[in-house]
Amino acid sequence: MLRSKRARKTVFAIFWYIVLGITAVAVMLPYIWMLSTSLKGSDEVFAYPPNWIPRTWRFQNYVEAWNAAPFGRYFLNSAVVALAVTIGQLITCSLAAFAFARMEFKGKDVMFALFLSTTMISTQVTLVPSYLVLKTLRWLDTYQALIVPFLANAFGVFMMRQYFMTLPRELEDAAKLDGCGRLRFLWQVLLPLSKPIVASQALFAFMGNWNSYLWPLIVTTSEHMRTLQIGLRYFVSQEGGTQWGIFMAATVFVSVPIVLFYLFVQKSFVEGIATTGLKGA
């Protein structure tokens, strides 16, 4: 009886690992292809049947990619902007979410609905008005232009509010009895318990900003304010051919920070799940 149960468990585990393995390979394929292409010469990129391992390894692609544009500066700009937006969003979203989840005030539901409705307006619609606002503030071609418009995010507020609402009221009551103020409760009790959602929100904010292209292109004109994604665009040719090997080499080093950031956040993600609950509170 016990044996067969364990056997069944093993079979089940093997089955799951196969499913997970296939999914992992499917997810990884584009990245592996990117890596493979980044080491190929132009004559190999379109070879048919495709070869996954380059016949001649062309590490030169990375050197050429790095030298094609001032990527050092682009990295700095992207890092400053993405980190500032991520931190800013975590602060504004958690405060707003806390108010919507835990406080009672007049017009709360209407305001929340208004917040949510902004998620239905696409960026293209607000592009020109936002540009005009920045122009009036004389912020075009500055860090403010890249950071300030993204410091608040309705979807983040929504996500965090939903999560805060699932945490038991008793926590707040207990904290109140101990003389804990609202801000301190948010900072010391609610946020530590909400690590998974904080981690997801941070990841969304960071990735969204790291990858954004249209907005930085429109609001910056000088070389030293440009971000990484605009640098990548430099490899895509207008009517002629794109140098795929070099383009993919640049794509590899541009996407590395996102992978690192994910690994970093993933840890607190798991940790957060493990410590969620009333235990020890």
Partner: peptide, 24 residues
């Protein structure tokens, strides 16, 4: 075309130099 699976391709002449490098 670049992979050798198409005989004739109508396209802008701007791509000639890169195509010349990419074809086998």
């Amino acid at each position: 075309f670049l992979a050798g699976k198409l005989g004739m391709l109508l396209r802008s002449c701007a791509g000639i130099p890169s195509a010349a490098e990419e074809v086998t």
